[in-house]
């Protein structure tokens, strides 16, 4: 997973830094030519800041996202499912490691990012603030949320910042296996016993709203958004990504005889666009502000893990305490 498409707006804007106009023009020309920006290259202050936010939130989403699925590893039915789910969730934690490293190239240490996560300063994908109640939730997360994340990550892997793109390419490769895992569980439940089907339908009903929220509300086409798109930080609009997801996956869900809890959802024949009812953006913003069903629990678990493991980190850092200044 799990990079949420949506990076919430900041409550307060930081001081605007005016970059050297010549450097800026050269930078923009490079990006326009499709060149990748590397860590030691000059970059606009705002470019660096936005990328740190985006990659950091993506990394947080990976480790927080491991929590709802992780609780199902011990409960997964049978060896095949257990082994696949363990490998999948392990991949997600591995993605966090890759992404924190990519963000570190921009100058923010992993410890600082994790501190910002547990202090609530830095966000993660809203979708993980919902509970995974049954085994069917594992199917919906693994199939549809991973699919949504792939739409977002494939777009971002074509962005301008080299280390992020390279991390994303590898992540997408692994995600495609996660999608297979999720799809397999999904199909087994959809074509299984009445109990299995009803579990799946129930999970789908509960997750549809967070899935529609996944890419965020329609972008304001502000100067700011346009700049980020010109710099290839933001690669597609939230609406475009949502449309792409709906086109790919709604038919697959419907083919299995499952329904979606939105009476207005349909493809408009003229425009080719998907129309849908209001997915309750008020709830979306409430969850971002920390009032979702699991925000407190997720952060509490993460915080407990940090606190309980602090002695290990401290001891490991001191392993090199007998540092000797090299000669010359």
């Amino acid at each position: 997973m799990y990079g949420g498409g949506y990076i919430p707006k900041e409550e307060t804007r930081k001081t605007v830094v005016n970059d050297d106009p010549d450097m800026l023009a050269a930078f923009e020309a490079r990006v326009a030519r499709g060149e990748k920006v590397e860590p030691r290259d000059w970059m606009p202050t705002e470019y660096r800041r936005q990328l740190i936010r985006m990659i950091e939130q993506h990394a947080h989403s990976e480790i927080i996202g491991a929590l709802p699925e992780g609780t199902w590893i011990t409960r997964a039915p049978g060896f095949r499912r257990k082994l696949a789910l363990m490998a999948k969730v392990q991949d997600e934690v591995g993605h966090a490691q890759l992404l924190y490293s990519a963000a570190e190239t921009l100058g923010k240490p992993r410890e600082a990012m994790i501190n910002d996560l547990i202090n609530g300063k830095s966000k993660y994908s809203n979708v993980f603030n919902y509970p995974a109640k049954t085994w069917a939730d594992v199917a919906v997360i693994g199939f549809l949320i991973d699919a949504a994340a792939i739409v977002n990550q494939v777009a971002n892997s074509k962005g301008s910042y080299g280390p992020y793109c390279r991390a994303l390419e590898r992540i997408c490769y692994e995600e495609s296996f996660h999608l297979k895992q999720g799809h397999s569980v999904f199909v087994y439940l959809a074509t299984g016993t009445p109990l299995q089907r009803s579990m799946l339908q129930d999970a789908l009903n509960r997750w549809w709203k967070p899935i529609m929220h996944f890419f965020g509300p329609s972008d304001e086409m502000s100067e700011h958004t346009l700049t980020l798109m010109r710099w290839k930080v933001k690669m597609a609009t939230n609406d475009d990504m949502r449309q792409q997801f709906l086109s790919l996956y709604v038919p697959k869900i419907q083919e299995l005889g499952l329904s979606l809890p939105d009476a207005e959802l349909r493809k408009d024949a003229d425009s080719g666009k998907w129309l849908f009812g209001d997915p309750d953006w008020a709830e979306f913003f409430a969850v971002i502000r920390g009032n979702g069903p699991c925000n407190a629990e997720r952060l509490a678990v993460r915080k407990a893990a940090e606190v309980n493991g602090a002695w290990v980190r401290k001891a490991l850092q001191q392993a090199d305490a007998r540092y000797v200044t090299p000669l010359a």
Binding site: V89, Q90, Y100, A305, G309, L316
Partner: peptide
């Protein structure tokens, strides 16, 4: 496998998860 998501450092999460898979 219960260490998944809870390790003292990410690398230890990954290590325990990997060992758990082998053992399974």
């Amino acid at each position: 496998s219960e260490w998944t998501g809870l390790g003292p450092i990410l690398e230890e999460d990954i290590a325990f998860s990997s060992i758990a898979q082998d053992q399974m």
